[in-house]
């Protein structure tokens, strides 16, 4: 049963150094304040899996030296350009990256969701992505004839972490149409969620709300963090803070500028 944590730090206790951590794409509800809290704690050697892409979150964790590896199909700041710390880490050869493609990540999470060891996927035959993924295997479709198809091993993260609009006191979390957040929670051993607010009442009692609710059964900890996705957007609630993201892109372009950004916006900032 989920616990409504009194502090963001206590909610994040299950995210230990060296764990495999699943996070959602940049416009799906990224727990950015929780990410800053993890960096303040000095978290290390995280194997980050982005479902299926990431932006500021991965770039910050890379720049702050928190990652052992990253699995994703892309890291970019979108209209604010390349993700500077990701790009620098790649070109200096310091980041272990498992390059993927979006549906491969979705499918591998679905395998864990179903409790099966792998999922087949179309595409990828002849892509150089497969040369760098010894964990992906090709077989001949057993129901076809001379039909190569790739098998992707299930991704089973230790912890899923995301930000959502609201939770009730039983830890049921309303995710709306961001269904990949449910997939992440089903696939992961533990799930930690930050929310904008607590909903008075039972989210599962109302069928309209229940259809967009991740049951507290899957949720281990909830912390209330208003504007917890800032400066990234929370769908249907608030937009990205473009001015701040542009400032990040400017500052993170150099190692010194990035350290200044960390000092100003991560270490000197506390959860609201």
């Amino acid at each position: 049963m989920a616990v409504i944590a009194s502090t963001i730090e206590s909610a994040l206790e299950a995210i230990a150094d060296g764990c495999t951590l699943a996070v959602p794409r940049e416009n799906s509800g990224v727990a950015m304040e929780a990410t800053r809290a993890l960096i303040r704690r000095g978290i290390k050697n995280i194997n980050l899996v982005a479902l299926p892409t990431s932006s500021l979150q991965a770039d910050l964790l890379i720049g702050a030296g928190c990652l052992a590896s990253l699995e994703t199909s892309a890291v970019s700041l979108g209209e604010f350009g390349a993700a500077p710390r990701f790009t620098a880490a790649m070109t200096s050869g310091t980041l272990t990256l498992k390059d993927s493609t979006c549906p491969a990540l979705h499918a591998a999470f679905q395998a864990s969701e179903k409790g099966i060891p792998f999922m087949p996927l179309r595409g990828l035959v002849g892509s150089d992505l497969t040369k760098h993924r010894p964990d992906w295997q090709f077989i001949d479709n057993p129901f076809g004839d001379n039909d190569p198809i790739v098998l992707l091993p299930a991704i089973k993260p230790d912890v899923a972490l995301f930000h959502a609009p609201m939770a009730d006191r039983s830890g049921n979390v309303w995710i709306g149409r961001q269904r990949e957040l449910g997939t992440m929670a089903h696939a992961s051993t533990k799930t930690i969620v930050t929310v904008e607010k607590i909903h008075d009442g039972d989210l599962l009692a109302d069928p309209i709300l229940a259809a967009g609710t991740l049951p507290g059964f899957y949720v281990d900890a909830v912390a209330v963090v208003p504007r917890g996705a800032w400066p990234l957007p929370l769908p249907d609630h608030y937009a990205a803070d473009g001015e701040h993201l542009a400032e990040y892109a400017r500052m993170a372009a150099t190692p010194d500028g990035f350290q200044k950004y960390l000092a100003q916006h991560v270490h000197d900032r506390r959860a609201a």
Partner: peptide
């Protein structure tokens, strides 16, 4: 993805996104 050696490239692009699948289907 990149120009040069994959694990230590000269140039790195954001990544493949959905191309490794959508181009086929």
């Amino acid at each position: 993805v990149s120009i040069g050696e994959h694990d230590h490239p000269k140039v790195r692009f954001p990544g493949s996104f959905g191309s490794g699948y959508l181009y086929y289907v």
